[in-house]
């Protein structure tokens, strides 16, 4: 891990704790349990036009409209709808958002000594949305910096208009 970003022991200590893990394909990810609000089954999602593609749309969470992000699209993975697909509702800086994941796995306790800094793969595979890599029970879990994944600035940076065609197709009024 010579290319690892320098990460102090104190930071690793801060990242230690309980994580909710879930699967995207064969990859297992972890979310800090404190950011998780609830887990709900998949429900009809209303697509919102003219938003980045990874925003699946909005859902009705008991009368509240919350946006839902598809992590597979967010991480540029192939979209496969599985049987166990569900929405994890997280609260980031007071904002509620849902994230679509393939399958929720378990809640694990990851100690500071089990966390390693996120490796760097160069520009093609961005890893700055990871808090680190957790190793527990012999499996590797990528610990998500959900704040970073969903934050507004990040949305802007990688924002994609829903389609280029819709703009060109607009009539020349």
């Amino acid at each position: 891990m010579s290319t690892a970003t320098p990460q102090t022991a104190a930071q690793q200590e801060a990242h230690a704790g309980k994580y909710l893990t879930f699967f995207l394909g064969n990859e297992e990810y972890g979310l800090k349990i404190l950011t998780v609000h609830e887990i709900i089954g998949m429900m009809p999602v209303t697509r919102v036009p003219r938003t980045p593609e990874f925003i699946r749309g909005v859902v009705n969470l008991r009368g509240k409209v919350i946006p839902v992000v598809d992590l597979r699209i967010r991480f540029a993975m192939n979209v496969v709808e599985t049987q166990d697909v569900c929405i994890i509702v997280v609260q980031v800086r007071g904002i509620q958002m849902g994230i679509v994941v393939d399958r929720v796995s378990e809640v694990v306790n990851i100690g500071a000594d089990e966390i390693e800094p996120a490796p760097s793969f160069g520009v093609d595979v961005p890893t700055d949305f990871l808090l680190g890599i957790g190793k527990s029970q012999g499996r590797v879990k990528m610990l998500l910096d959900i704040d970073h994944v969903l934050s507004a600035t990040e949305l802007d940076e990688t924002a994609t208009a829903s389609s280029t065609s819709d703009a060109t197709a607009a009539p020349q009024a």
């Binding site: 209303t46 919102v48 938003t51 009705n60 409209v65 007071g94 904002i95 507004a152």
Partner: peptide, 23 residues
């Protein structure tokens, strides 16, 4: 509102829960 996570979307002023529970 469509939730602060999305913010303003051009051409839309917000959302509403319809009779069937969808947005």
């Amino acid at each position: 509102s469509l939730g602060e996570g999305i913010g303003r979307v051009d051409g839309l002023s917000g959302g509403a829960i319809l009779g069937d529970g969808r947005v």
